[in-house]
Design a protein around this nucleic acid. Sequence first.
DNA 1: CGAAAATAATAAATATTGTTCATAATTAAA
DNA 2: TTTAATTATGAACAATATTTATTATTTTCG
Lengths: 195, 195
Amino acid sequence: MDKKQIQEQRIKGYFIQAAKELLKGEGLKRVSVRIVADRAGYSYATLYNYFKDLNDLIFECVKEFQAECEEHVKVKTKKSPEGKQKIKDIVKAYVGYFNEYPGVFGLFFLERMGDLCAKKETSGLIYHSLDTLCDEQWKYLVGNGELTAEEAESKKQLLRFTITGVLVFYENRLQPGTYKEFTKLLDAQLSGILG
Amino acid sequence: MDKKQIQEQRIKGYFIQAAKELLKGEGLKRVSVRIVADRAGYSYATLYNYFKDLNDLIFECVKEFQAECEEHVKVKTKKSPEGKQKIKDIVKAYVGYFNEYPGVFGLFFLERMGDLCAKKETSGLIYHSLDTLCDEQWKYLVGNGELTAEEAESKKQLLRFTITGVLVFYENRLQPGTYKEFTKLLDAQLSGILG
DNA sequence: CGAAAATAATAAATATTGTTCATAATTAAA
DNA sequence: TTTAATTATGAACAATATTTATTATTTTCG
């Protein structure tokens, strides 16, 4: 029956919504079965009627955050001029999303994904998100003759690692002390890679 | 009394040793008060006579791992020729240590340090370890005229971020699938930065 | 040496976790 | 309306970190 599917999906949504709010607000360590269920308006046991376990629920959140992030970037860079400038803007928007929700960054890159059941699926989703977002622009630059295919591949990798590294340092609240310094650092790194 | 200090330090050492073994072998998730105390040959409650809490113990482990890592790098690069080559070798040895003990890398960069009490102290220790290890060589290159002070600072930063990023990807078992590919990637990135 | 005092080790207890299961409540079917 | 299926839930279980009161040990000193 279709109704069943709709209703089930709706209730799953309540749990997911509650978990997402907690993840964004307080981070993974504050997400417990009891608290999520409370916020969703159900008993903790009910959660297990809709999700295999807590990781299953969190995995759904990861997927939604990933989509949110992608959407966020696309909206913010809609008008950017194609090529290197657009890549820079994509990266800035990408970083901006994680800066707005540090808990999501922690969930994506820091907190052990090892526990999340479908490792390959989740990791693939997360680890290639920046690549996917920039892919068109890299192709554009190669087609344009601005970069060779090898140069593009090399820069793509460098960008991926550098941005992740920068975020790891900043989100752990150490490296650049202020947001101002952080954006300056980011700009510098982007110029270094893309010219 | 001095005897007291020595004995206390000795028993603390048993707990630290047990925790270190667990961290290296199985990672943070497998480290529990009960298991550590068991391995140390004491009751779990005894641990609290020597450490404020579990984080306090783990912080001690972090300090020891940090020292171990430093020592490991220094031994491995003792004979390297000064300058860029030595920086490359330092980075390789540094990465090599974490590759040998993935649990330690996770502890350092991935698992939420937020819980570790003395955030600033711990983070400073960890986040500047690579910088400190390479510092002499950067100075050498500047004194040598091979690099300007600004170039050195910029490359130092880039190196720090890139290496962290590469490790985050590799240790989460996704990016390069094999160790062979990983070292190749590392070499490429090092050449890109240091020429 | 032996009693008193200080120190150290521990078991029991508390408060959280995630997860399972039998049962109660609700909804759908006949 | 009675029966059957589904859904929600509280109780229970195992494992977690930590605290507290009590026991065991060691040190001190008369």
